[in-house]
Design a protein around this nucleic acid. Structure first.
Lengths: 103, 103
DNA sequence: GCAATAACTTACTAAAAAGTAATATAGTTA
DNA sequence: TAACTATATTACTTTTTAGTAAGTTATTGC
């Protein structure tokens, strides 16, 4: 079981190579969103997975999380500089899917 | 549980959004490779996962598989046209990782 | 003073992914 | 004739991922 990365691609995949992470990052490209609004943009994600995934993205410094101390709670998510640097990749993945599924 | 794709990115992720698929496709960018050679380029992948993954890629038309009827067996894998169309994305993912991990 | 609210959090269960190790194949070479 | 080879395949177990449903919070509006 070799855990080292064989190439930078491996490193990238360890960061964002999951089912939900690219989707969440993609929707944040249009701007910061409240937790509930962002979650509604991702059909099929469960409450648990949503929280878990954004928290991992936050831990990895790809998104930031702003908590407004009000009741009921208000939380906003947005892309960090590091997250924004994925923009081209995220849009390429989306465009590729768009073209490919038309064939 | 909504299973429909919310955007083309979702479609793309369903095709290649796993731990090993992008890695395998990436190594095939340099040209066709024998099964064993390709597998050795992917540290940490088990025998089972390797076979399983290339077979899925084949099923999805991203790679082709050529079997030479010799003993011991010889099998070559290569990118299909559809697989090749992922080149920019794969290289972007690799380059992103390269730049990011230097910070 | 009680329900409604948004954003979790937790405990528990179920499902999916991955690892391990044994087995198959059949010509070639020692 | 027995071992060696490359490429799987299979059965089984472990690990990881994900889903479900209930509970928490503290203020506001009724």
């Amino acid at each position: 079981m070799n855990k080292e990365n064989s190439c930078p691609l491996n490193y990238t995949m360890n960061l964002i190579g999951t089912k939900w992470k690219p989707l969440i990052l993609f929707h944040l490209l249009e701007g910061d969103l409240r937790s509930g609004v962002l979650q509604k943009k991702i059909p099929g994600i469960s409450n648990k997975m949503f929280t878990q995934t954004v928290r991992e993205l936050e831990k990895d410094g790809l998104v930031f999380r702003t908590v407004f101390p009000v009741v009921p709670p208000k939380v906003e998510y947005g892309l960090s500089k590091r997250g924004e640097s994925l923009e081209d990749i995220l849009r390429s993945l989306d465009t590729w899917g768009l073209n490919d599924c038309q064939d």
